[in-house]
Amino acid sequence: MSGIVDIEALRQFRTMNLNSNWLKDLRTEVFRRMYDEPIHPANLWLTDEPVRHAEADEIYRANIRRLVERRAYTPPAHEFPGARYIAPPDPGPTR
């Protein structure tokens, strides 16, 4: 899907809208410790092709583990496998 973005209208919205413009209210300083060290590996696919779903899921799980280890995330009381990629069944030979 694509669309035209009216940059000037966005700029106007940001400077005039007091209620729906949440960006002006962010308290980014509270996240400083969370971002002191990288979370997601930089330039993962700069020279290599992106990996398949299952491999990417492990990268994302490692990112979450890092956030838990840094105490930026508190782990839940009970662990569940969560989202995971399930490959479609092999359709067999094609004619």
Rank of each mutant, 00 (worst) to 15 (best):
E69V: 05
E8K: 02
P75D: 01
I4G: 07
Y85L: 05
E69T: 08
Q12A: 08
E37D: 05
T94W: 07
W22R: 13
N43C: 05
P38N: 11
A56H: 12
V30S: 07
A83S: 12
E37H: 02
P50S: 15
D48C: 07
M1P: 04
D57Q: 15
E55C: 04
R11A: 12
L46I: 12
L10E: 04
V30A: 03
P50C: 14
I7N: 07
L18M: 12
I86W: 05
L26H: 02
I39E: 12
G92P: 03
Y60I: 12
L23T: 02
M34C: 13
V5I: 07
R66P: 07
P81G: 10
P75R: 01
A9F: 03
N43W: 00
N63F: 05
A77W: 00
A83M: 04
P75S: 01
N63A: 04
M16I: 09
T28K: 12
M16W: 04
A72Y: 01
M16E: 11
W45A: 03
F31G: 00
R65W: 08
T15G: 04
E69A: 12
I64V: 06
R95N: 05
A87P: 10
S2I: 07
R33N: 10
A72P: 11
R14D: 04
L23P: 02
M16H: 11
I4Y: 02
R95C: 03
V68P: 05
V51Q: 05
T15A: 03
H78T: 15
E49C: 08
P75W: 01
E29H: 14
P41T: 08
P88N: 14
T47A: 13
A42E: 15
D36V: 01
N19G: 13
H78C: 06
L26P: 07
E49Y: 15
L67M: 15
R71W: 00
I59L: 07
A77N: 08
N43V: 02
P88Y: 00
N21T: 10
L18C: 11
I59H: 06
M34H: 12
D6Q: 08
N21Y: 14
T74A: 02
T94D: 00
T47L: 14
A9S: 04
D57Y: 15
T94P: 02
I4W: 02
S2D: 10
T74E: 05
N43Y: 05
K24Q: 01
L18T: 15
I39R: 03
A54I: 00
D57I: 14
L46G: 04
E49F: 04
T28F: 14
V30W: 06
P50K: 14
M34K: 14
R71H: 01
D6K: 09
L23E: 06
Y35W: 11
T15V: 02
R32S: 11
R27L: 12
M1D: 00
P50W: 13
H78V: 09
P50Y: 15
N17I: 01
A87M: 03
I64Q: 12
N19M: 10
I39M: 00
F31S: 06
A87G: 07
A62T: 03
H78N: 09
P50H: 13
A54E: 09
L23Y: 02
R95F: 06
A54R: 05
L44W: 04
T47V: 15
G3Y: 06
R27G: 11
A77I: 01
P93Q: 09
E8G: 03
